[in-house]
Design a protein around this nucleic acid. Structure first.
Ligand SMILES: [Zn+2]
Ligand SMILES: [Zn+2]
Ligand SMILES: [Zn+2]
Ligand SMILES: [Zn+2]
Lengths: 165, 165
DNA sequence: ACTTTTAATGTAATATCGTAACAGTTTAAC
DNA sequence: GTTAAACTGTTACGATATTACATTAAAAGT
């Protein structure tokens, strides 16, 4: 039965309408900030926009480079502060294997993020399989380990890259 | 059926005989180098000994600090070269969430390393559950993703730390 | 409205992690 | 012994991330 659940997979296809990704994310951000009475400041919005601009992960310094509005070069800490905020809000994820950041594709869905990282096109999707997270939880508990946090990153080749040789 | 397989869990208990961990690892290293006609040089042995000295992960610069035999401070690259060698041989693993390194607890067992990281005692074990790796593989494939490499790090509290409050 | 408190920003410096490049040396192979 | 491959020494640098502290802006309390 539980094996029949549909997976909530999201891997960005080549011709998906990406502007709707961006719009949804910014909308969710605004709504969530309103709800939690948090401030969606310029820096935070800008960093989110930069990250959301594609499904390829960006390093903190890549983001920083794109923050040169007003011609001034920002200090690294400016990017990191905004990133911390966005990560805590669940709008952005950190990829530990890449030291890089991506926008969440499943905001508001209460998921254990599991990443699909295509090493050819560099796009990143989210597998977010409950079957996987539950299997990890069960086996860890069986081993006498109490799980607080799971980190799952899957490196390989996405469907479209596999097709195009 | 397959759910009845015993897990090959290894989490270092407080009173395990750790010198046998070290001896086994060094023995395996020597044997593997002999078999593959690779050179188990001083640096490589020393780095392996340092990493194997406990089940707590060490950063590259921590390792470096302990390489001051002959009083001379080694350059970072010395540690990284030895680490690369040991990782390729499967004797050492890198923990991406910690930028740190641990000795493998399952040398020669052809495993997808899955780490149990206790955030209290800092010890690291290996879950290495085939059920987990197969679940990941299946769900990723179902999502149209071809898996080359899995990265699973589980952060939480180990059995002994949970017991002692 | 003014004061108090909290949150966010500006700025500089520094810590931590990792790699490139290249000359010199040792070891293994021929 | 000569050659080729692997390893080492050394320097410099690149990339990632945090600490500390002064300043400003916003929210909350009166
Ligand atoms: Zn998109
Ligand atoms: Zn997500
Ligand atoms: Zn041990
Ligand atoms: Zn291992």
């Amino acid at each position: 039965m539980e094996d029949m659940e549909a997976l909530p997979v999201r891997f960005p296809s080549r011709q998906h309408n990406h502007s709707s990704c961006v719009n949804k994310l910014l909308g969710d951000a605004e709504e969530e900030c309103r709800r939690q009475k948090l401030r969606f400041t310029e820096h935070r919005r800008k960093v989110l926009e930069i990250i959301a601009s594609s499904h390829k992960p960006l390093g903190a310094y890549d983001i920083l480079e794109q923050m040169n509005f007003s011609g001034r070069r920002q200090a690294p800490v400016v990017a990191y502060r905004a990133l911390d905020f966005l990560i805590n809000l669940g709008l952005v994820h950190r990829l530990n294997s890449l030291n890089a950041f991506v926008a969440c594709m499943a905001v508001g869905e209460d998921h254990t993020a599991q990443f699909l990282i295509c090493r050819q096109c560099k796009n990143v999707g989210e597998l977010n399989s409950n079957r996987v997270s539950e299997r990890i939880e069960k086996d860890a508990v069986e081993a006498g380990f109490q799980v607080d946090q799971q980190l799952v990153e899957i490196i390989g080749i996405c469907y479209e890259c596999a097709e195009s040789g």
